[in-house]
Design a binder for these strands. Structure first.
Lengths: 118, 118, 118, 118
DNA sequence: GTGGTCTAGACCACA
DNA sequence: GTGGTCTAGACCACT
């Protein structure tokens, strides 16, 4: 995993984990790597991973058992909700941006189809 | 105008101006507000407006006449390009975001059409 | 039994046992569950139960007979003291918390009476 | 300000600030000390103050203006709510604890009154 | 000058 | 072994 500049590393790691979870690569209840191991694997400071886990916990995507590790939340619905929420947010802001540029949704769809063929 | 967190204010102001220009609210050759007045209007640090004007100048969207102020360029092509570029950027990042969420363009189009009817 | 975050599990278990003892659910001289069985029942690491028993022994609430298990002490006075001590602790910390929030004891009593009627 | 052991410094600072706000020592809209200055004053690492400000922001008690500093939220209601919420939480858990110890609210009130006279 | 991020590394309580 | 907290200090973008 190599990181983009300009975007905080911890956010990039968070997004990667969310993806893994929403795609099922990480399953509900599954244990995440320990902060230390993960930090070594990604060549990143342990504090950075700590922060990732804490932020994800704040979003109710993972939870921590003291001294045991950090785990993906077990409620499958919540996980599905994460994905849906992310998707809805994406679409909504896209439409808002289109409006601001005075582009109709139809125009946008046309362009999207063009891009699809490439 | 209220600003989103996480996105630099100067970028948000830049985008707003680009919009105004591409929508014709600001016409080619028209004078922009002085940095001082604009900063007061937006309740923002004057340096921030200075930066906005400087960045826009770097993109050849405005130009500065010493002692006279800052003006929208008069080349209509450039202005058309702005609009096109903004639209393309929007679509491109949208598609990239979709990929990250593992959503196909077709799915997105379906959702867009749903939203359109509301 | 489900555990609160932020409070060590071993403390929560200790409190539960003290409660059971002071309420008579666990009687003087009665044998506690083995660390192993108790840890299985609570889905907790056996070391955690060991620590609970050791701490309770340090407070003279239980005692261990080698090879026989762990037992509630038989001195009724001690058990009565436990209850009193827990009550006093509760009241004392409650008052301290009130002070920090700048709430008078009278205000608190008023609220308590309101809640009592519900 | 000297810190208790066993309780994280950042929590103690948070509580102190919440108190100051709910008591009006810090007024709505008022700027907090800069992370650096505050860290020097409290003889604490700047990161620790950073964390305090970020956690308070997460609780909607303060907000941050980029490059400008950190400020107490301006909505007076929110601030009042903080105090009420803290008070309600306190009373509720107190009553729950009483129940667990099999102590009636009346008994508790009696004890509280005794303490009040000391 | 302001907060945000990150590294390096330490110590601690908990399991 | 696990995460939680903290120090020390660096660099950065924004105002």
């Amino acid at each position: 995993m190599d990181f983009k500049k300009n975007i905080p590393i911890y956010l990039q790691i968070m997004d990667k984990l969310k993806q893994d979870i929403s795609l099922g690569t990480l399953k509900p209840g599954e244990k995440l790597m320990s902060t230390r191991d993960f930090s070594i694997k990604l060549k990143v400071n342990p504090n950075t991973i700590s922060r990732v886990y804490k932020e994800l916990e704040g979003e109710n995507i993972v939870f921590t058992k003291r001294g045991m590790g950090t785990f993906v939340v077990e409620d499958e619905n919540i996980l599905q909700n994460i994905k849906n929420k992310m998707a809805d947010d994406l679409i909504t802001t896209f439409i808002k941006d289109l409006n601001q540029l005075n582009i109709s949704i139809d125009e946008a769809i046309t362009k999207l189809k063009e891009m699809e063929e490439d």
